[in-house]
Design a protein around this nucleic acid. Sequence first.
DNA 1: CGTGTTTGACCTGCGC
DNA 2: GCGCAGGTCAAACACG
Length: 287
Amino acid sequence: MEQSCVDTSLNLNVIPSQHIDLAAEVLVEELQRLSSENKRLTETLNKVCENYDALQKHLNQLKDADFEKEGTPLHKRKVESEINSMNMFGISSFTECSTITEEETFKRPRNNNNNNLPKVSKVLVRTEASDTSLYVRDGYQWRKYGQKVTRDNPSPRAYFKCSYAPSCQVKKKVQKSLEDQTILVVTYEGEHNHGNDQAEISLSLTSLSETPIGLVPISSAMVKSTTNPTLTLDLVQSTIIDNAQKSSIQKLLIQQMATSLTRDPNFTAALASAISGRILDHTNYME
DNA sequence: CGTGTTTGACCTGCGC
DNA sequence: GCGCAGGTCAAACACG
């Protein structure tokens, strides 16, 4: 039987120059569209931040008033529920990407030693609505040790411990957002004492099915204190850059798109399916 | 057989 | 002191 050989490599160099110009024009138009959208989102975010600050001030005033009136700390669960209700005003996607201490969340105020407080950070991850699993791929190995239905949210909360290294005491909690069932709220407690070789969420635009909300293109000036490495793209500034920079940015964007696609399991599966289909077709044709 | 998940029981802290 | 809620444990189970 004759062995068939199919060239599956992508030869991008054979594209005619007029097609490249056309593609560049399309990319420039897309960039301009994204710039205006980014500008609009930035303005919205500014307003949200202002509202958040105002609410935060109001909350602090209430806390101070309560301290003065009763001389005792505010009822912690009450405060927590107030904070939760604040997050319901669309603030959550912004604020919960920051790293906060437990004292700031009023969770463990009994521990007054701030130096020993494990760092608590929250990450919002968008998943498909039909996806009922509470598994978030973040490059680390996790062992699930519990699941619980909490009072304020009908969705169960899953508890994970880092199983990458026995000495690593990092924990994470995963629960679907009360407001949006397509969003997973991932709470990390502590810091890993080891590296990770395949971080997928925090550092890169990879999976299309699990998109961290913290990676939406926002102006870096809008990001409040966060120790988590969060990728931000300020597309607004692209209007004042020269053509050389535009060209390099376009290349970067294309590279990012290619990287995102190649890392996406759905895309690779579809690609493999298409290639195997082509091979089968070719084999059938040869026969 | 080893590893990871499930799930009911148990522990602990907080509010009343 | 009691009840509630969140967090953890550990035996049973599933899977490769």
